[in-house]
Nucleic acid binder design. Structure first.
Lengths: 331, 331
DNA sequence: TTGTACGCGTTATCAT
DNA sequence: ATGATAACGCGTACAA
């Protein structure tokens, strides 16, 4: 049985409405009384009951996050940052790992102020289902065009930027390593970016320079890099890689094969996260910086809650950051 | 603005308390009225307001899970199962990725019925801090002995079982691959189990047969296995491995080195999860089966909520499941 | 069988 | 500056 403002009131010899005001730091309470009440509250270990508060305020200062794939490591950095940013705006973040439909229902019953849905493999996900929700929902990482509020990053353009830059510094034999095996449309987007870029730059598409991995783990990248070189053709001078973990694997393979970076091979990695620069070689990276994504999502959520107008479909544009892993090609 | 039982009452031409009873399937309401009310509720898309309900019932039918390490893949299967089991008991699971202290405070304000804390690297975690909580807390994966309610698996015995079995079928050169580099006490426990088993069986401890990885990823296992064989000593006839992902890497390395399993090498892997059997070779595994852990945790939580007596420190004992990856040693 | 009234803990409005 | 009181949505004892 936790203690309430009424307990504090009895203790302090004031009415409980005064306690409420004091704890909310209202100017309608005299300084000394306020001090006294706050002190008592602390002593008793008072914890405001959010349930009662949100009942009267119709606001819970809580954001529900639908997180159906705990298994996937990728967006975890993102959710961590969003959690932090929202906290600094005194919002609490709660996650549900249920299926979107039931998670959204849960959050509705909990009267959260907004719901953030992380996209997953399309199979059991379909925003068109139009989940009944009186709470505004923001979707992230949904490739489909929908009538719903979405925010996402431009993966296609990211890879294009990488290819374009490599061409600009003289490379023409540019390989791509990424996961095209899965049904994940997000991965496909990147590959399309690669193909489009080659086309626009009038570079030939060579099948042996396209390696599809069977996953997004380090080892998958390691294998892919080895198979790229196994062909024995050392023509490849530059490489675009679809994710951070794959890049790590590629570096390991390069080390093993005594390939020097960037002397023998220039590399640009997708995933604009700080970790990329902490690898053995400071790798060039492309994509929307993760903190920019986190900020954009947080801001959008707060806007939605405040009833401000928001674009129904926000696309974040990628940035290329060139580090040590790229060198011009001298023929 | 979501709709309430009052809206339904107006619509159905009854009082709202009748609606409340009908929706709770009370026998005090006539069947036809009940049917009618339920139908209307569905049509209007009524969602009971948990906030109001838990205020009056002092029960939210919600379990808070403190999940400070979204990044770690390991326990994600576990939380998924727990979530499912609790759901089938009509409890909702909510996660917080905040630090334990603030997550616990949050869940207290939300009046959850119980809190489940997943242990993490000890650094910023210390149950001795005695977080103020009027809600019962259950800790999982805390190695330290505390006064708090804990439930955990016996990792040390698990590895011992593996070593003992290998000895029984004739092996004497038994290697161990695991992560001893981190400060994670859970990993250390496993290693201690290995050493104790060797001692008890009067087997020599050979440093070259103990490979410490620098992580728990597939690639770490791959590297470890290679370095084990690189020593050129092919004396090792059996191997105990500290985790599922490491085992996957070891298998890859074995494939590459044309080592046959179990003919050239017997393997037992820690982590008693179904996935282990789906690898190229059906690997023997040891540990507490994940669904048994999930069931035990769920049951304990429900017991705590119902006010039943629970052991303050529950230890789950491991099982060894021998599959294709072990063969007797014929000298 | 159905309706009325009260309380859960809090905030907000009005009166003192 | 402080206190009394009505709401928020729901469940339940009690009255009808």
């Amino acid at each position: 049985m936790s203690i309430t403002i009424k307990d504090i009131a009895k203790y302090a010899g004031v009415s409980y409405s005064t306690v409420s005001k004091a704890l909310r730091n209202s100017p309608l309470v005299k300084e000394p009384t306020k001090k006294k009440i706050i002190k008592i509250a602390e002593e008793l270990g008072y914890q405001p009951n959010v349930v009662a508060r949100s009942l009267v305020q119709k606001k819970s200062y809580t954001i529900g996050v639908v997180w159906p794939t705990v298994e996937r490591v990728a967006p975890s950095v993102l959710i961590t940052q969003i959690n932090y940013l929202l906290e600094s705006h005194s919002y609490t973040t709660l996650l549900s790992i249920n299926k979107p439909e039931s998670a959204i229902a849960t959050f509705n019953r909990f009267q959260v102020d907004a719901i953030l849905v992380f996209g997953e493999n399309e199979e059991d996900f379909n925003p068109a289902k139009n989940y009944a929700s009186s709470v505004p929902i923001l979707y992230y990482g949904i490739s489909k065009n929908t009538d719903y509020l979405t925010i996402d990053v431009n993966r296609r353009l990211a890879i294009k930027l990488a290819v374009q830059y490599l061409k600009k510094i003289g490379h023409e034999q540019i390989a791509y390593i990424g996961d095209m095996s899965s049904t994940d449309p997000l991965q496909k987007e990147k590959f399309i970016g690669y193909l489009e870029a080659l086309n626009e730059l009038s570079l030939a598409v060579k099948p042996e320079m396209i390696i599809s991995t069977n996953g997004l783990e380090l080892y998958d990248g390691y294998l892919a890099a080895k198979s790229l070189w196994h062909a024995g053709d050392d023509q490849v001078t530059a490489l675009v890689c679809g994710s951070y973990d794959l890049t790590r694997g590629i570096l390991r393979a390069a080390q093993e094969q005594k390939k020097r970076i960037p002397d023998d091979l220039s590399i640009i990695s997708y995933d604009n996260i700080p970790q990329v620069e902490n690898l053995d070689v400071r790798i060039s990276k492309v994509g929307v910086p993760i903190d920019r994504i986190a900020k954009a999502i947080t801001k959008t959520i707060l806007n939605i809650i405040d009833g401000n107008d928001v674009q129904s479909s926000i696309i974040l544009e990628p940035e290329l950051k060139v580090m040590d892993s790229c060198a011009p090609l001298n023929k």
